[in-house]
């Protein structure tokens, strides 16, 4: 990581982690003052996973996300204005207020969708990978999901099929330690989740999910393999959900000292401690991100609520011939 190119990658990664962090902090502010309807599943603490993984992708690749999906979408380059407007339920949001925080999609960026059902996106991502194979492209799918989803049946069904048919998909378990309020170690005997790969005859690796470069290198290898037709990989990124399950959850069930330990391993802090970027450059990035976030919040605040006559629109596709 010495060249000018790698320097620009590091700068982009730092900016993206900050972008996610600041975006989520503003989401939480909107939530706390009642301006964000519904549930706020924050990605704070897990920024290095989405950032490192999506940095590997090409523009024509696909990503599938989860209920805790803002980070994946931002890392994939989603429009912050349209995201924040959607999260506030406004007309100018990605889904015109029909989907909200858990259902943001953008096919122009290959974002197959966040998903309100834990594990619901895993087969969809696997089907997109089949589609890449079918169409004879060398596109790759990144499929994000949590430790919670790794105990859903769709995990098993999808990995089995992707392995059987060498599909170009990389499964990324964001092990943030908790499924809602339950620690993964209380409901699973084998805590090394990447070992499950062996059951499907595919490669599995566990990495420090708070180290953005560790994530980047693991995903890079997996994506290269997938693109070369060598099939799927299972990557467990060990990270931590610094907030509760959603905005209402204060995380009182955590062990004493647990949060403090993980805060000392905060992904943005770890990055800054490495001195990849000098302090002045970091400050420039911060100022740039701050301006983007301010702009997105302003846009969302000023966007109108969806008109009542839009209620029944879009149940079926009205956009003409699809190909």
């Amino acid at each position: 990581m010495q060249t000018e190119e790698s320097k620009s990658l590091l700068r982009a990664m730092y900016a993206n982690m900050l972008r996610i962090r600041r975006f989520e902090e503003e989401v939480f502010e909107f939530y706390k003052c009642g301006k964000m309807p519904g549930l706020a599943h924050l990605y704070i603490g897990e920024e290095a996973v989405a950032t490192g993984a999506c940095a590997v992708l090409r523009a024509d690749d696909y990503v599938s996300s989860t209920h805790r999906g803002h980070g994946h979408l931002i890392a994939r380059g989603a429009d912050l204005r349209k995201m924040m407007a959607e999260i506030l339920g406004r007309q100018d949001g990605y889904c015109h207020g029909k989907g909200g925080s858990m259902h943001i999609m953008d096919m122009s960026l290959g974002i197959l969708g966040a998903n309100g059902i834990v594990g619901g996106g895993i087969p969809i991502a696997t089907g997109a990978a089949y589609s890449c194979r079918y169409r004879g492209t060398d596109q790759v799918v990144l499929c994000f999901f949590g430790d919670g989803a790794s105990n859903e049946g769709t995990f098993h069904e999808s990995l089995n099929m992707a392995a059987a048919w060498d599909l170009p998909v990389v499964y990324i378990i964001e092990n943030n330690q908790y499924g809602i309020t339950v620690n993964i170690n209380r409901v699973t005997r084998e805590h090394d989740l990447s070992k499950r790969a062996a059951a499907y005859g595919i490669d599995g690796v566990s990495v420090d999910g708070n180290d953005v470069l560790a994530v980047y290198h693991a995903v890079e290898k997996a994506v290269d393999n997938a693109r070369a037709g060598k099939g799927p990989t299972l990557i467990e990124c060990r990270t931590y959900r610094q907030h509760g399950h959603n905005g209402n959850d204060n995380g009182a069930y955590r062990a004493a000292g647990e949060l403090e330990h993980w805060l000392s391993r905060d992904p943005i802090l770890l990055f800054e401690q490495k001195d990849y970027l000098d302090p002045e450059e970091r400050e420039n990035v911060r100022a740039q991100v701050e301006a983007e976030i301010r702009d997105a919040c302003e846009f969302a605040r000023n966007s109108p609520e969806p008109a009542p006559e839009t209620l029944m629109e879009g149940i079926f596709y009205e956009g003409g011939e699809h190909r």
Binding site: S64, L112, G113, I122, I124, A128, S131, C132, E157
Partner: peptide, 12 residues
């Protein structure tokens, strides 16, 4: 698994 895969195929 395969119904969900079909959804992913249809989206792409």
């Amino acid at each position: 698994g395969f119904v969900g895969m079909s959804v992913g195929m249809a989206l792409t």
